[in-house]
């Protein structure tokens, strides 16, 4: 079935809510407004106000309330308008959701999904444009999922809802309208299993969420203009990470570029680069390259915004560096 990313997410939640009465959705404007990005379209009508809950504007409120409900067996899906505002709820996410099971000696579990839009859209400035996955993967106790396609969005969200641990589910703000083929019904993708999004032999690009599409565009250009064959690997879940699929690809191509929308310092790409050099050091024919955002808060002015974020030319240049083209620059 052809669906948009937003419809695929909606289908995942709706199917899980129909299957399991303990699942419910809560957040700012998820009911009557149908979600800031219209992900919960029609759900209030279908499931009623007890299970599709509009809350006051208080992120630490609804995440905290969700943790409490989860501790006694409900399965809350908490929608944040954007992950930027998860920072208002950070104590509930990191100090509580992530640690309740461990601190209670396993007596309480917190099967919550915290989901919403992440990454930059266009011209939304410093407080609306952040990629925070490395912050969540840094903290023990959280699973972090970042789908790039409608099919992955559905399959991963269904699995995340059934998972017994807190899952941080970061959606691409610019992907909601993207169309793709989505399997009907019981389509479940295990957390921790990546996918090769494009096969190739000269270099591996590792990318997730929106960056997968940037990597694919770069791969196409590299093939068209430079006759290079690039493989694109999408881990899909950042934690747990499918290390194997990345190592297998790099062992084949001998080169690796990690593209992420976030900042470079302590970025997910740093961890992936470490694992690649540890796992397949002898297979590498060039230093691992990274493409990230510039280490500054996002500006508003369009010409500056374009400079900050990863772009196709930056990815193309990084791949060519791993192949010592352009005089090794």
């Amino acid at each position: 079935m052809r669906l948009s990313y937003r419809e695929a997410l909606n289908q995942a939640m709706s199917e899980e809510m129909a299957r399991d009465p303990s699942v419910f959705l809560m957040g700012e404007e998820v009911g009557h407004y149908q979600g800031a990005y219209k992900v919960s379209q029609g759900m209030l009508e279908r499931f009623g106000e007890r299970r599709v809950i509009d809350t006051p504007i208080a992120e630490c409120g609804f995440v905290g309330v969700g943790v409490g409900a989860a501790m006694v067996g409900l399965r809350p899906i908490v929608e944040l308008m954007t992950f930027n505002f998860s920072l208002v709820a950070i104590d509930q996410v990191i100090n509580n959701a992530a640690k309740v099971r461990q601190m209670s000696g396993g007596q309480f579990k917190v099967p919550i999904v915290i989901r919403g839009a992440g990454g930059a859209a266009h011209q939304l400035g410093a407080q609306h444009s952040q990629s925070l996955e490395s912050m969540y993967t840094y903290c023990p106790g959280l699973k972090v999922v970042m789908p790039a396609t409608p099919a992955d969005a559905k399959g991963l969200l269904k699995t995340a809802i059934r998972d017994d641990d807190p899952v941080v589910f970061i959606e691409g703000e610019l992907l909601y309208g993207m169309q793709g083929e989505v399997p009907e019904g019981e389509h479940l993708i295990p957390l921790g299993r990546g996918e090769v999004k494009r096969e190739g032999s000269d270099c591996t690009i590792v990318a997730w969420s929106k960056m997968v599409h940037l990597a694919l565009a770069a791969a196409e250009e590299l093939e068209r203009k430079h006759d290079l064959s690039v493989e694109v690997v999408d881990p899909r879940t950042i934690k747990p990470l499918d290390e194997e699929i990345i190592l297998r690809s790099v062992a084949k191509t001998h080169r690796c570029v990690v593209v992420e929308e976030g900042w470079s310092f302590n970025g997910v790409g740093a961890e992936i680069a470490h694992r690649v050099q540890r796992g397949v050091f002898d297979e590498l024919d060039a230093p691992i390259e990274r493409v990230t955002s510039l280490d500054v808060p996002m500006p508003y002015a369009l010409h500056l915004e374009d400079l900050v974020a990863p772009t196709v030319p930056k990815v193309v240049a990084a791949v060519r560096r791993t192949l010592y083209l352009d005089g090794g620059k």
């Binding site: 930027n84 505002f85 011209q123 400035g125 407080q127 609306h128 808060p297 500006p299």
Partner: peptide, 29 residues
Amino acid sequence: GNAHDPGKGRQMPCHEGTRASKFVTMSSC
């Protein structure tokens, strides 16, 4: 968000602020 913006083109529209007018730059959150 142009070069004359006292906030130097950093913030979304309607997030003005000028210290000289004792008017603090607005936060989106």
